[in-house]
Design a protein around this nucleic acid. Structure first.
Length: 817
DNA sequence: GTGTGGACTTGCCTTGAGTTGA
DNA sequence: TCAACTCAAGGCAAGTCCACAC
């Protein structure tokens, strides 16, 4: 089977990514990929090696795979070319909605970032080795002591049960006492350090600055001529002094916080029981005949199943993408067989199946509430058995225990495999992991068996199978986010990010001194670390050619970063994870600007900017600076510290709704920093119109009320009917006056709230807040803030997040990241 | 030093349940 | 009551990073 280039008859010429030839050998006899035996991609590859036809097989899955290779090479090529010629007229390509209209959004973003992100140019006061813990990091110090797995497990269980009762404000005297105790501890720490108080204060301040504040600092520092001084100081930081500092900090931290730096390794459980997983139900043929060249065609259930997969996607953007259609047709033809009448896509009419599907959906919608409830309960009853696992005797919720049903692969962006058949997973492809001696879940399909049953207590998965789309990858069944394992892992992640706070000054000094390093690899590491720290970029692992063409920091291409002439600004533009566009113009350290210019020299479009670098080398370097430090820790650190800082403004005189707006705005800043985008909701325009209408109506009401108030003040009867009883008011009374005032106040509040909702909706049109809240923001920051400002935590966290972050609910109100 | 398998985390989108308003 | 709207949960794609083999 071939993949085809859009514009040529021949196979795709693969772009060079890795200089060495890569050989993939799948080991499962059931894998579609394994039928290819070996796929070799070399720098001069002219395409994929055609698959080697499998030898005869006799089980069902094998027959399925065998039949897929009836069309090979030229035959397929010819058919696809014919299809392609007809595609243009059939479909109009649309851009993914996430990218549509993004220009306007990004313009405003660029402006914001340009003026806020360049604070990194300022070198903070450089500290001698063995820097101390920050004062703020000590506040609420108790919450930083992780428990043993057993203790934590018990505690988290209790947390979940007492979620509401735990969320209580302690008395202010408690907080004061704690702060005072913390201050005493810091005084002792001060004596151990060689820093002056001013230097310590500066460090603390720098440490906790948001990117915007760093920018302000830069400006102030430039004015005072401090930059050169601090840069000179930065040079004095040597690698060895850093290592000493690291050792000292980690030693003191380990002693005082019992931090589980390697809690991810080793034995994870002693006993582990569960009921396995749920396989999708077998396909039920509907018998609706699609049309080919205007005629009804006969399809076997297997053929009909795949036709239906496409038909139900008729309304989606995928169904209009040539690559999607090409891949779908390639895989469907294999199932149709060489002799089947269906050959060309443009002659296929899936409408009858689509209509049938819509009808089924409508039928489902028309069910009564009672019928729906009954169905839901029935489903819950069936699922209940699989929803729970027992880890060391503790009942834990299982995450997604369902094996993915067959379907067409919906890759994101311009994924080369979009539209490929994601075939049904059989039990003999699934490995189960369960405690030794526990009853092994029965295979749900008679006469079939699991591929393997393991008792591996160093991992946390319940089951896994190979990804049918990418045989090098796997699909896992894990415990739910609310489980102790996930909770502990989350806590460890945030503790590591908080630890970075103690190292960040030294690390920044370290990478700055390497901006001019003669060793090109070291220089590239320093510039990459700077960008990751400053812009919260992802690491950027190498990718294969059969994945979407996206990049991260280490894989940035020459064309992704441009130098804005006569400035120290970089224009950065690339497709990141999930093919989300990253666009930013940002001022950088002049040395970084210069270094990037050097890295680009002599390279062509498509070549890597950091050619001496990969994520392994970068992370290896980072680990020398702080134990366990990797590129992604910077993202967590910068997201959390930004939220912490932005929430630290005085908002005591505001009501709860206004405080929530303050929180959402802070959350939004983090989402922008991390480039968390979403496609514009389909109903956004309508929603905005509606809110605008409401405001106009409310303002009309307000005018009327104010007129009446004015009349009543002068002793005249109100003009309009009173909405309360519908009767005209002939005489005014003092109560009427008070009532009007109350209504005016209420209307003003409503207008204010609607305007606020509108502003927020507009601001968040294409910004996704949920991702940062779920993955990057230490929940203790939010919980403590809620406690300090008497905001119900339910206003900030939904039910899922409350359960996921149960471990953070008892944090002290004085907690700061 | 490099590639790869493996185990996890991160992140956007779709679905469908719940809510609102006519 | 029902249609329209809203938003959380779940699904699953796509990242990161580590260990290990060569």
């Amino acid at each position: 089977m071939h993949d085809y280039d859009d514009d040529s008859d021949g196979p795709i010429i693969f772009k060079r990514r890795k200089t060495t030839a890569t050989t993939t050998t799948a080991d499962s006899k059931h894998e579609y990929g394994s039928k290819m035996t070996k796929t070799t991609t070399t720098s001069d590859s002219s395409g994929m090696v055609p698959p080697v036809l499998p030898s005869g097989s006799n089980n069902k899955s094998k027959q399925f795979s065998d039949s897929r290779f009836r069309y090979i090479g030229e035959e397929n090529s010819k058919l696809m070319n014919e299809d392609k010629m007809n595609l243009t007229s059939l479909f109009q390509l649309r851009r993914p909605s996430s990218n549509v209209d993004s220009k306007h959004e990004y313009d405003s973003k660029m402006m914001t970032t340009t003026t806020s992100d360049s604070g990194m140019v300022v070198s903070p006061s450089v500290l001698p080795s063995g820097s101390n813990k920050s004062k703020q990091s000590q506040v609420g110090g108790d919450s930083r002591f992780p428990y043993t797995v057993e203790e934590n497990s018990k505690l988290m269980d209790e947390d979940k049960m007492n979620l509401t009762s735990l969320f209580q404000l302690p008395s202010s005297s408690d907080s004061i006492k704690q702060v005072s105790e913390t201050a005493n501890t810091d005084d002792q720490d001060d004596e151990e350090d060689n820093l002056t108080l001013i230097e310590r204060k500066e460090k603390l301040e720098e440490d906790n600055l948001t990117l915007a504040e760093r920018k302000e600092k830069l400006e102030a520092a430039s004015a005072l001529g401090r930059i050169s001084k601090t840069k000179i100081a930065a040079k004095k930081v040597t690698s060895s002094s850093l290592k000493c500092a690291s050792k000292k900090i980690i030693k003191s931290r380990s002693k005082s916080t019992n931090l589980h730096l390697n809690s991810g390794a080793g034995k994870k459980w002693t006993t582990f029981a569960h009921n396995g997983i749920v396989l999708p139900p077998p396909y039920k043929p509907h018998g609706v005949k699609m049309l080919y060249n205007g005629e009804q065609v006969e399809l076997t259930p297997e053929q009909e199943e795949v036709a239906t997969m496409f038909a139900v996607m008729k309304d989606t953007e995928f169904a209009a993408k040539p690559k999607f259609i090409e891949n779908f047709m390639n895989d469907w033809r294999v199932i149709l067989g060489k002799e089947h009448v269906i050959k060309k896509f443009h002659l296929c009419d899936f409408t009858p199946i689509y209509d049938w599907h819509q009808n089924e959906k409508d039928k489902k919608k028309q069910l009564s509430a009672l019928e729906r409830k009954a169905l839901k309960e029935e489903k819950l009853k069936e699922d209940e058995r699989y929803m729970w696992a027992f880890v060391d005797g503790k009942k834990e919720k299982v995450g997604n225990f369902r094996v993915e049903p067959p379907g067409l692969f919906r890759g994101r962006g311009e994924h080369p495999k979009m539209g490929k058949l994601k075939r049904r997973i059989r039990p003999d492809e699934i490995t189960i992991n369960i405690g030794k001696g526990e009853p092994v879940p029965e295979c749900p399909i008679p006469n079939e068996r699991w591929k393997e049953v393991k008792h591996d207590n160093t991992v946390t998965w319940l089951a896994f199978w190979k990804n049918p789309i990418d045989p090098k990858a796997f699909k896992y069944v894990f415990l739910d986010d609310t489980s102790s394992w996930k909770g502990q892992s989350d806590k460890d992640k945030y503790e590591k990010a908080r630890l970075l706070k103690d190292y960040i000054l030294d690390i920044r000094a370290n990478y700055r001194k390497d901006f001019r390093n003669k060793d090109l690899m070291k220089q590239q590491i320093s510039v990459a670390a700077y960008l990751i720290d400053m812009l919260a970029l992802r690491a950027g692992n190498e990718k294969d050619d059969d994945e979407a063409d996206t990049v991260g920091c280490c894989t940035l291409k020459v064309e992704n970063v441009s130098l804005v002439p006569q400035t120290n600004k970089l224009e950065i533009n690339f497709l990141g994870k999930d093919s989300i566009k990253y666009e930013n113009t940002v001022e950088v350290d002049p040395l970084v600007y210069k270094a990037i210019g050097e890295f680009k020299k002599g390279k062509n479009t498509g070549e890597e900017l950091f050619d001496k670098l990969d994520t392994y080398k970068l992370n290896a370097h980072l680990k020398e600076l702080m134990p366990g430090l990797t590129a992604k820790v910077f993202r967590t650190y910068n997201a959390s510290i930004t939220l912490d800082k932005l929430l630290n403004s005085e908002i005591m005189n505001r009501n709860v709704a206004e405080k929530v707006v303050v929180y959402n705005r802070a959350n939004k800043e983090v989402a922008k920093l991390c480039n968390h985008q979403r496609s514009e909701p389909k109903s956004h325009g309508a929603q905005m119109l509606k809110l605008r209408d409401n405001i106009v109506k409310l303002k009309g009401v307000l005018d009327g009320l104010e007129t009446n108030l004015h009349r009543v003040r002068k002793g005249k009867a109100p003009l309009q009917l009173d909405a309360d009883d519908g009767k005209p008011k002939k005489n005014f009374t003092p109560e009427m006056y008070g009532g009007l005032q109350r209504k005016i106040k209420l209307t003003l509040d409503k207008i204010e709230k609607t305007e606020r909702d509108m502003d927020l909706k507009k601001e968040l049109k294409t910004t996704a807040l949920g991702t940062s809240k779920t993955n990057y923001l230490d929940p203790r920051i939010s919980v403590a803030w809620c406690k300090r400002h008497e905001v119900p935590i339910e206003k900030i966290f939904n039910k899922s997040l409350l359960a996921k972050f149960a471990w953070a609910m008892d944090v002290d109100p004085s907690f700061r990241f």
